[in-house]
Nucleic acid binder design. Structure first.
Lengths: 155, 155
DNA sequence: TATTGTTATACTCTATAACTATA
DNA sequence: TATAGTTATAGAGTATAACAATA
């Protein structure tokens, strides 16, 4: 049987009007890239994401961070616990509400973030430079905000 | 401290010439989307990916599938085992080389793939339709092959 | 001896459920 | 009683290492 022809639309660039085919192609690309990032990371990706999030937002509770990343608070708490054990973040109780714990970067976390990020993304930065033209990089840069909009969407 | 300004390039659309910032933004988008896909999937994503791969390539050994997905053969073997247990693929020994096992779609696997795919990608297809304009979808469709090139690159 | 595949084990990531402490 | 957080447990995804079977 010629199975290839039946699903060819997921292989090449799908027509823009066909959201279903585009969604499938996107899933494929996104999961392949996730594995590449994970395989090349020096710090577990969730830790790197959380570190960057705290750096951008400033001190926040674990629950706030979890909501921002669309994860369960317990899942984020584990990541934050690992960062705390590594000395990259610290938790201090909110004086106004003893139930809350504000997570903030330590001096070490702040100092290390750029280097962690550079190391974790080095392979991608290299691939972007060597495998894509400047025009293609610009095309991709324009598409990234669209990807983030999809990821952050309500549905 | 104003941590936000130091890392603002990862938030908005980064300049196309800065591969490092683009790489970081891409990591963020890709991992957020991965969580969305996983959360909405009806079949574990690796199973769906493997099923689609076998459909496109035709019968292949587990090792060949693993190489194509850049995973270890043992990891792909587990996924294939789950698909086999579900009756979606079958393994038969290569008559020419008894060490090899060729994995192929069953009639059920072939019949079910489109439906699995539709269900797993439904949220994304909906988001693409409702949150992006036709022009933005076209922009994204053009970027997907670039993402695949990065994911399949040597480095 | 080299290659293919299998089994055993472990670690990361995320989730659900149950529990504790504070408001 | 409602809310914030913690602890316990489970399952998916992937990896490394050791083993078995075939060439």
């Amino acid at each position: 049987m010629d199975a290839a022809s039946a699903h060819a639309t997921t292989q090449s660039s799908p027509p823009a009007s066909d959201s279903a085919a585009l969604a499938s192609a996107l899933r494929q690309a996104v999961h392949s890239l996730t594995r590449r990032f994970r395989g090349n990371a020096i710090l577990p990706i969730p830790q790197l994401q959380a570190l960057g999030l705290i750096a951008r937002l400033g001190p926040r509770t674990t629950s706030q961070l979890a909501a921002h990343e669309r994860m369960r608070p317990q899942s984020m708490a584990q990541t934050v616990g690992q960062l705390e054990a590594a000395g990259l973040v610290e938790r201090r109780p909110d004086p106004a509400d003893g139930r809350q714990q504000l997570v903030s970067l330590t001096a070490q976390g702040d100092a290390s973030l750029a280097e962690f990020r550079r190391a974790a993304d080095a392979w991608a930065a290299d691939a972007l430079t060597t495998q894509l033209s400047a025009a293609e990089r610009a095309q991709l840069a324009a598409a990234v905000p669209l990807l983030l909009r999809l990821a952050d969407g309500e549905r």
